[in-house]
Amino acid sequence: MSSCSGFAPILPENPTIMILGTMPSVASLEEAFYYAHPRNTFWPILAKAFQQPIETVEQKIALCRQHAILLWDVLAFCERSGSLDSAIKQPEANDFESLFKRFPDLKTVLFNGKAAQNLFEKQVMKTQTLPDDLVFHSLPSTSPANAQLSFENKRVLWHQTLEQTGVK
């Protein structure tokens, strides 16, 4: 079991949507950037959604900023062996209360997987004061551990939600 610390958020100037994962994977921690595992479909899904190349870290950050997407994780810290969300112990949430006060136009939260939603409900909604008008959407995890859905099925669900929320 090792201690894991999350990353600082990718902060656009005036975010309108936030995408939340749980905690960076071992591969992401090693690369020091979000969704770095080569089989994670997060960045390929966004590349197709916005029809722009996002191969470098700089391009990924630019895409988030260009489309007002705040990218972060539910947890700031945890204990975990490996990368599986099911292995998370002693979770500590990020400070969302301050974040929503700082960005009052931020009203939509997309969860990258059920585990992110469940952690947010347990670790954030029960302990922090959040705006009443937030809208939440749970999407299929882009993790390679989520093999139940094909890339195409994940892509379609993510694209539909991005369109519904006005991002795409």
Rank of each mutant, 00 (worst) to 15 (best):
L119C: 08
V26Q: 08
L119D: 10
L119Y: 09
L99A: 07
Q52H: 13
A36G: 09
N146I: 02
T16H: 15
N146G: 02
V167K: 07
H37C: 09
A68D: 13
S3A: 15
T108N: 14
A93C: 05
T108F: 03
E97I: 00
A93D: 06
A36R: 08
K89S: 04
Y35G: 06
P144V: 15
L139Y: 08
G113S: 03
A76N: 13
E121K: 10
P44D: 11
N14E: 14
K48W: 01
P38E: 13
A62R: 12
L11S: 11
K168T: 09
T161C: 15
S98G: 09
A27D: 15
R39F: 11
Q164C: 12
H67I: 04
S150Q: 11
P104D: 04
E30W: 03
V57Y: 10
T165G: 11
P104Y: 05
T142R: 01
A68E: 10
T127F: 06
S2C: 08
E97T: 01
F7D: 10
V57D: 05
S25Y: 02
L149V: 10
F33M: 11
L130N: 05
A27M: 10
P91S: 03
Q51R: 12
L71E: 07
T161I: 10
R80W: 00
Q90K: 05
V124Q: 02
P9L: 12
I69T: 04
M23T: 07
E55C: 11
P44F: 06
K122V: 14
V109H: 06
F103H: 10
A47T: 14
F50I: 01
P12Q: 02
S81Q: 11
V135H: 12
E92Y: 03
T56L: 02
L20H: 03
R39N: 15
P91G: 01
L84W: 05
S86N: 08
L139E: 07
S5G: 07
S83I: 03
E79D: 11
P38G: 09
V124A: 02
Q52F: 06
F151A: 09
E55F: 11
E55K: 15
W158V: 02
S143R: 08
A49K: 02
H159M: 13
Q123M: 13
Q117A: 10
F120T: 02
L46N: 08
V156M: 11
L149Q: 14
F77I: 01
F77T: 11
Q51D: 12
E13P: 02
D73T: 04
A8I: 05
E152I: 07
A93E: 03
T161N: 10
E13V: 08
R155M: 04
P24F: 01
T127P: 04
P38S: 14
I45N: 00
G113I: 04
S83C: 04
R80D: 00
K126H: 05
A76P: 01
L106Y: 09
G21V: 00
L149G: 05
A93R: 00
P9W: 07
A87H: 12
A8Y: 14
P9Q: 09
S5Y: 14
C78T: 06
F111Y: 04
R80C: 03
